[in-house]
Write a protein that binds this DNA or RNA. Structure first.
Lengths: 241, 241
DNA sequence: TCAAAAGTGTTGTACTTACACCCATGT
DNA sequence: ACATGGGTGTAAGTACAACACTTTTGA
């Protein structure tokens, strides 16, 4: 069609963040109560639009992490989950959202007096039970983020991103148990993680935790991919396909 | 800031496709020679912009598959790889591309007389050796697609998407060898795939392939996730971290 | 009868689970 | 002393690489 000057449609680009941490041995996700329409008053994943024409998408995710959660992307694990772009997912118009997964260690205490004040940690069980509902398609994004995290615990050192160094092996076990939602044998877990060369390196000291024998301390080693992998037990009852 | 009416920037949304198939036992990827600037005359992954404001992103991928490769998305494996949105990746402006991975079986013969005429299959070794260079950041997207395909062969029935039914177990082995770039022991492979319950179901007949004993024929079964997984041999020489 | 591809058996090693057991601490 | 959590030993079971071997075809 000569002379045809069709131009492709323009869309709005957003980033959304699935930020996980462990609190009281429970996997929790950060959500914010929406102050504006649509879904005013409902909970949503932290996120927002690209700040300007030249902002990198990953940089926008890092910025939202800082603005909405007062977390520093440089100290966190941050990876892209994927794009969510179904028409109608946002009533404001055609919005494509690029979702990111972030893992935060339990921090000194969360951001009092920052503009992240509207952010709250919600235990994952409350979301999986549908006691807390999320706006937009954020439940889908969150489920994808959870599955990604579960899968990466098997084959990468992602679990250490939940811990502040130094940590004990049972700290690490709590991460696996919380994210996978299973109980693991501490004796087998202990040796399995130590058998992976370069996963954990001793951090000298020991930690006394009230009762019981003091535990050795470790920090994350160089190795990012685990071999052999730590395979999660098959959920035999539910007979996954 | 009351009275502030900042609006977020608009971007162009594209889809790009990594389409793999097996030809002469070699993994090949579909590329198109670009007819327009930028990168006119260079090779790029098939793809294009959203057709209109209301087109779903996955639907755009399916449409490009049809237009640029004359392939029907309903008969193919098609999954999202992720979003690529670095500023400057496309000189025409701010373009966010959502990449998809498609797996095509070797088809009767490729689309003569369609508008997919500019599309050519290129063997992956020619790209990995840098004998063929790709436009934009498509080499990055392709590498991500290759790694995704390699990983999914381990734990899912993705390999069957490369085969037309019915197929033999050595057909399937060729898929694994081509995608992983390794040689596998046919005797161990034979039993390993058969041991995965529901992965392959017998398709009655046998196939005579010139010399040698005729092979049993199979088709893909119900099971989409493989247990136990087919683990690729560690690339011991290159010492991956 | 031979080469070639399909398919079966077997063995040694690696990794896992399950659980008995010992160790070091606070109360 | 004893409860509690940390850490070690070990045996049975499973999966796997390696490779000897048999089967069934075309030439």
């Amino acid at each position: 069609m000569p002379g045809d000057h069709w131009t492709p449609p323009l869309v709005l680009l957003a980033v959304d963040l699935v930020i996980f941490t462990l609190r009281e041995s429970v996997l929790q996700v950060l959500v914010v109560e929406r102050g504006i329409e649509p879904f005013r008053g409902a909970f949503a994943l932290p996120g927002g639009f690209l700040a300007d024409e030249n902002e990198d998408v990953a940089a926008a995710a890092a910025r939202e992490l800082q603005e909405e959660a007062a977390l520093d992307a440089a100290e966190l694990h941050l990876e892209q989950l994927g794009a969510y772009g179904t028409p109608g997912r946002d009533p404001r118009g055609r919005v494509i959202s690029v979702a990111y997964l972030a893992i935060a260690p339990r921090l000194p205490e969360p951001y009092a007096g920052t503009d992240a004040a509207r952010a709250v940690w919600v235990p994952m069980p409350e979301i999986l039970d549908r006691r807390v509902r999320l706006a937009f398609d954020h439940e889908q994004i969150l489920n994808d983020g959870l599955e990604r995290a579960r899968a990466k615990l098997e084959s990468t050192a992602l679990a250490t991103a939940f811990c502040t160094s130094p940590f004990t092996i049972s700290d690490l076990q709590q991460v696996y148990e919380a994210v996978w939602g299973v109980r693991l044998d501490p004796r087998n877990f202990y040796r399995k993680v130590q058998a992976v060369d370069g996963f954990l390196v001793p951090a000298g000291e020991e930690r006394r935790a009230g009762r019981g024998r003091p535990a050795r301390l470790f920090e994350a080693g160089e190795r990012l991919t685990l071999w052999p992998p730590l395979v999660r037990p098959a959920v035999s009852a539910k007979g996954e396909q």
